[in-house]
């Protein structure tokens, strides 16, 4: 895969080089073709999957069409929307909690060295405790309920948010903060127009890695201690060796991740970094 990616990169570079002397219109064409490349990549993936499934003829790898059919069935029976809705709710709450708490602690640690020293050991511990341990302990301490599930997910994510935001807080330009002080800007205006914009790249990085981590952990949490959600469903399918069901839910899940990336994260990032031109 890596070799292929490298080759693809070289090919794209070669195309760009070839296109360069021709003029901006040609270059625009290649940039405009980004969506086409992404679509082609998706099609190739499905075709490869199909070929492999036909060759192997195994129950362990159903055909793509079978899986798509399963997605339709599960959607029509409303089972998938129900479990997906539950999982997404957990993801959103855990994500928001982890981002808010992690950002506040990260900013504080970036600013106050004593606090940084005090909490640094805890942070290292938080970063390295296996997710499974936190999940089990949360269920044991708080019971098999949604609060425990969300706390477990958030606890797994908070340390990585802290580390990223702390770096951002350390990189805040004191000279720009002096402008805010010199002109006696109100606190809220200083925060929203001077301080936070400096943290945006770090917050975006934390959000991106956070979302991918939280997707994964939420499923484990559901598998271990909830009676609904995609993680729970996957466990049921596993019991019945229902591979089509597992792949159907995985596909929908992956589609949602791609949609969030394309329609939420990327536009947001473009908006926040517009000034870099």
């Amino acid at each position: 895969m890596t070799g292929k990616a490298e080759r693809a990169g070289r090919d794209t570079a070669a195309l760009r080089l070839a296109a360069a002397p021709v003029g901006p219109r040609v270059r625009r064409f290649w940039h405009g073709g980004d969506a086409g490349v992404r679509l082609a990549s998706l099609l190739v993936f499905v075709v490869l999957w199909h070929v492999l499934a036909v060759v192997l003829q195994s129950n362990s790898l159903p055909l793509p069409l079978t899986v798509f059919g399963r997605v339709v069935d599960e959607t029509l029976s409303l089972a998938m929307p129900y479990h997906l809705g539950i999982t997404l709710t957990r993801v959103v709450i855990a994500f928001a909690a982890a981002m808010v708490i992690g950002t506040v602690i990260g900013i504080a640690m970036g600013h106050w060295r004593k606090l940084d020293l005090f909490l640094d050991g805890w942070l290292v511990l938080g970063l390295n405790v296996p997710a499974l341990v936190t999940i089990i302990l949360c269920y044991v301490w708080f019971g098999l309920n949604d609060t425990a599930a969300i706390i477990a997910v958030a606890i797994n994510k908070i340390p990585t948010v802290i580390v990223t935001v702390r770096e951002g807080a350390r990189a805040v330009d004191p000279r720009l903060m002096q402008v805010a002080s010199a002109y006696r800007l109100p606190r809220w205006r200083t925060l929203s127009r001077v301080y936070l914009p400096q943290l945006y790249p770090y917050l975006m990085a934390a959000a991106r890695t956070g979302l991918s981590l939280i997707w994964k952990i939420v499923l484990v949490v559901e598998l271990l201690g909830r009676s609904n959600g995609i993680g729970f469903q996957l466990n049921v399918f596993f019991q019945f060796f229902d591979i089509a069901g597992i792949l159907a839910y995985t596909l929908v899940f992956a589609a949602i991740v791609l949609v969030v990336e394309a329609f939420v994260l990327r536009p947001l990032e473009r908006r926040l970094t517009r000034w870099r031109g």
Binding site: Q178, V179, Y183, R184, L185, R193, V194, P197, Y200, W275
Partner: peptide, 29 residues
């Protein structure tokens, strides 16, 4: 001194993420 103080530093110290007009209006309340 409370408010009403303008300050020009050795460097322009404009907020790179704000437009020219937004930079000027930033301090205007």
């Amino acid at each position: 001194p409370q408010g009403g103080i303008g300050f020009m530093f050795q460097e322009p110290r404009l907020m790179p993420w704000l437009t020219v007009l937004e930079n000027v209006l930033l301090v205007a309340g």
